[in-house]
Design a protein around this nucleic acid. Structure first.
Lengths: 150, 150
DNA sequence: GTAACTGCAAAACTTTTGCAACCAG
DNA sequence: CTGGTTGCAAAAGTTTTGCAGTTAC
């Protein structure tokens, strides 16, 4: 609606291509969510965040669709699920090897880079032969520093 | 009341003492849940498991109470929360250092012992000074071994 | 007796489902 | 056209809340 002003540095057609290359039809809704998520550096969002931000950006889409899209994006490796609290799923646009720091007081999640070799140590484990390691999640739970007793 | 028959190898009074020492009044409900959880080796249970097992053991208690008790037990370190899927909280009676293997196909969670030193590696990280590491969760997500493509 | 605890029903939340309408190729 | 997508409303599932009644000490 407003051709004079672009909201992002990545043109729409490149998002379209990204989606197409991943086997996803570039619908209005997928393009909107992809732009939201993939333009602003690493982000942690919930379905609600995506819903709300899409509305603010003038793109209305149903919750059902938000969930559909986020799950599809997870399947194709565009985002990654992060679960730190029961009853809420976060989606992380950083799909490289890293860990998460979860502040139990504020509810905030932050990425923490880690020497990949160190993270790989955790993969060298005795796992039954019939299964395969899909992912290794490391969550550092932090809280308010307890003041010394008395 | 029935000296000839005992349901468990741990006498009731010892559970009572355990609870009292932790600052929890030994109510009928807490005793039942504590026996259920602390007598059978390491266990992973949901609130529903506790509710159902208590009923089967002839102790009826409300869901509200199950949640109250499980959260209280978590606070005093009798159990530990494990969150691997959104929408469901597991409680683990193994509170020592270990990791979890979560089978995404079956939904099953298993403990995996790990060299504590290796786990401690993860604690040697750059964490902001004003917070304190409460816990380090490691979840190894496994699934069906993918058959080779083509 | 009194504060701690429990139980019930209802509410709160996130996520999923079923199905009709819609749209990209 | 036609199957992949979307949207709506309702359902499902877990966890929380408010408050009256009960219990441990």
């Amino acid at each position: 609606m407003e051709p004079m002003k672009s909201e992002s540095t990545v043109p729409a057609y490149s998002v379209r291509d990204t989606l197409r290359n991943l086997g996803l039809r570039p619908t209005r809704q997928r393009i909107a969510v992809a732009r939201l998520l993939l333009n602003g550096g690493n982000r942690h969002v919930t379905a609600e965040d995506v819903y709300r931000e899409a509305q603010m950006a003038g793109v209305s889409l149903a919750y059902t669709t938000v969930y559909n899209i986020l799950h599809q994006f997870t399947e194709v490796g565009l985002v990654r699920e992060v679960i730190v609290e029961s009853g809420k799923t976060w989606f992380d646009t950083n799909v490289g090897p890293h860990m998460h720091v979860f502040n139990e007081r504020t509810g905030e999640i932050r990425d923490l880079d880690v020497d990949p070799a160190r993270l790989n140590l955790l993969r060298q484990l005795d796992i039954p032969e019939d299964v395969e390691i899909k992912d290794v999640d490391v969550i550092i739970r932090v809280g308010q520093k307890t003041s010394p007793h008395q």
